[in-house]
Design a protein around this nucleic acid. Structure first.
Lengths: 160, 160
DNA sequence: ACGTGACAAAAATACCACTTTTTTGTAGCA
DNA sequence: TGCTACAAAAAAGTGGTATTTTTGTCACGT
């Protein structure tokens, strides 16, 4: 079975085995347009592509890490505006997420998939800025920093 | 004034000019332990180090991008558990944030500064996983994928 | 110029009940 | 096997209100 003909796509059960998602979830997602199979048999059965698998696995991991399906929905929508040519946004990007947001890396930028807002904060850049602004202090600063002992800042936990 | 003596640290007013923060904020942060000056004069006046400036600028940027001070507080606390030797967590890391989270990059890992939870989701890894699980389908998959829309983007994410 | 304290406004958060979404189960059917 | 439909449980989102945090402004002392 592994070499006779063209692969027509993964069946639902195969996807269940591979991804760990439930059949019910796949059906629901298909119906509600989270991730639809790239192809459908004449009988109406789902056929998932390899790319679909990646996307499904990504969504699964996001869920497992506490990102809700509703946020994943929004993320997919937001990403589609940036990648209009793509059908499965999550299948070709590097994704970082926490329970609150989904960040996607694209062309060296961090993109908040929920809002579309994109930015990276480079501390190294700040250093340049400051030195540029106060060029006189550069040399002095280098010496000066050695004066400070590596004491640890304590944070008042009640203040939070 | 640029070369006579050792630099003893930036005064509050200097920090105001450099960072754009208000004196009120610096005082409050000093009192509530967000970021304290690394040194204090005998008269009790603040003296901020260059490292402090970086941290302050970082916090300023986070604020400007919608991260609340309270979340910044939590982030600092979480980071201190990972970087106990450091006094100003925000001064030596690359930070990415949205209105909801603060991610810090450290040793190739993405770290949620709010929760301390760390993880990166690498889509490329998922691909390997799947192929590993279904080695038979590898060749077939390659053919099969050509049936679908051509894949576009490969992400080059900046080294972290 | 700097720090402190007091008062008040603005911003963010926490907590509550309420609504919607998502998941899951079951059963029928191709 | 796989899809659909109906139903119920679980999870997440929404909106209003109280509470806390943050910031601005002013006065006073050093």
């Amino acid at each position: 079975m592994a070499n006779t003909r063209l692969h027509t796509g993964f069946s639902r059960q195969q996807v269940v085995n591979i991804t760990g998602l439930t059949a019910r979830q796949l059906n629901y997602w298909r119906r509600t347009e989270v991730i639809k199979p790239s192809a459908t048999t004449q009988g109406g059965h789902a056929r998932y592509s390899f790319t679909d698998l990646i996307a499904l696995k990504t969504v699964k991991q996001l869920l497992d890490h506490g990102v809700s399906l509703q946020k994943i929905r929004k993320s997919i929508l937001a990403l589609l505006q940036y990648l209009p040519l793509q059908q499965q946004p999550f299948s070709e990007l590097k994704v970082i997420a926490t329970g609150d947001v989904v960040l996607v890396f694209h062309q060296g930028m961090a993109l908040d998939a929920l809002t579309g807002q994109e930015w990276i904060l480079e501390v190294a850049e700040l250093e340049k800025e400051i030195v540029q602004q106060y060029p006189d202090t550069l040399q002095l600063v280098v010496e000066q920093d050695d004066l400070f002992e590596p004491n640890i800042t304590n944070i008042d936990r009640k203040a939070i």
